[in-house]
């Protein structure tokens, strides 16, 4: 199982970035191997549709789970279509977020909870 966590910095010790599309980094965690891989968020400065672009990156990484702060309607639709489960409202360090997910303390998002941005 692979997870992506949005992060304000490149390391697992960095705090979770509450933004999805415009997050500074996306950190990929391989639950089986226990390894972290840092992905630069290429689309964070996109004029529009940063969430759509990020959703494609997450889908292409093979992750099935996303841990983030908020997820807007377009990103939600794209992640849903790609079969990625979203857990929002995640706070603290990336490491803590992973632990919270392992402990089953996070709730899956069933509808977008972020503001559409133009």
């Amino acid at each position: 199982m692979k997870l992506v966590i949005t992060a304000q910095g490149p390391n697992p010790e960095d705090p979770v970035d509450p933004r999805f599309g415009r997050a500074a980094y996306h950190i990929l965690f391989d639950d089986k191997a226990g390894t972290f891989t840092t992905l630069e968020n290429q689309g964070k400065d996109a004029a529009q549709g940063a969430g759509v672009q990020a959703a494609q990156t997450i889908a292409a990484s093979g992750a099935e789970i996303l841990l983030t702060g908020h997820c807007g309607p377009k990103a939600f639709q794209a992640l849903n279509a790609a079969g990625v489960s979203i857990f929002s409202g995640v706070e603290g360090r990336v490491l803590d977020a992973v632990q919270a997910w392992r402990d089953g303390r996070l709730e899956e998002l069933n509808s977008p909870d972020g503001t559409p941005r133009h």
Binding site: V52, A59, K74, A78, A81
Partner: peptide
């Protein structure tokens, strides 16, 4: 350039308002 299309592994989505 406007991220109006998401190409996903099994589906390609269009976001008309983008």
């Amino acid at each position: 350039e406007f991220n109006a299309i998401a190409c996903l592994p099994r589906q390609t989505l269009v976001f008309p308002d983008l």
